[in-house]
Simulated scan of single mutants.
Amino acid sequence: MSQDLNHPIPATLAERKEKLIREGAAYRAAVRGARDMFNKNLRTEALARGLIAHLTGNAYAVIGNLLGGKRGNLQTLLPLVVSGVSLMLKARLLLPMWRSVGVIGAVGAGAWLLFRRKKPLMTED
């Protein structure tokens, strides 16, 4: 076994024991921090934020591919959006789209309220 020159081995048994205790404490702190981060990321709000970020990223990628590989920015997308909205207004497609968005939003809000509610703890009588 080769020894690392930056970390000399403590000479006495007490020093080695102290070093192991410090390493164990650091390991337990890291595990506790990872567990807290895991529990924090499993909350509904964090999952919803991650889902929205993922969907937004995918939408930008699709729009970028439609524009011929160029990155979509406001100056390149605005004429497309305006012409698309204008076409939908002329074809009377905007109202059904807003209705479907409203229905999907209502279902999503209902699901959010349903999952947000805390379940009562069962008590023994």
Rank of each mutant, 00 (worst) to 15 (best):
R35P: 01
N65H: 01
M1A: 15
Q3G: 10
G69R: 13
L5E: 01
E23L: 12
F115V: 15
L89P: 04
G102Q: 05
L13Q: 05
G110L: 10
V103C: 04
N39M: 15
V107C: 06
A26P: 00
L67H: 06
A30G: 02
A30L: 08
P96W: 03
G68D: 04
L121Q: 06
L93W: 00
R32P: 00
T44S: 07
L55P: 00
G64N: 06
M37T: 07
G68V: 12
G57T: 03
G33Q: 12
L67S: 03
I52Y: 01
A34S: 11
L89V: 09
D36N: 12
A48W: 08
R49Q: 12
K118T: 14
V103L: 09
R71S: 13
L78V: 12
I52W: 03
L42N: 08
G24W: 00
A106R: 14
N73W: 03
A46G: 01
I52A: 10
L78W: 06
A111Q: 14
G69E: 07
L89H: 07
A34W: 02
S2K: 08
F38P: 01
K19M: 14
N6R: 13
E15N: 09
R117I: 10
S83W: 05
L42F: 03
A91T: 14
F115Y: 09
N65D: 02
M97W: 03
K19P: 00
N6T: 14
T123M: 11
E23Y: 01
T12N: 09
A30H: 03
A26H: 06
L67N: 09
L5C: 06
R92P: 01
R43G: 12
K118Q: 10
G105E: 14
G72P: 14
R16C: 12
G64E: 00
H54T: 04
L87T: 08
I21G: 01
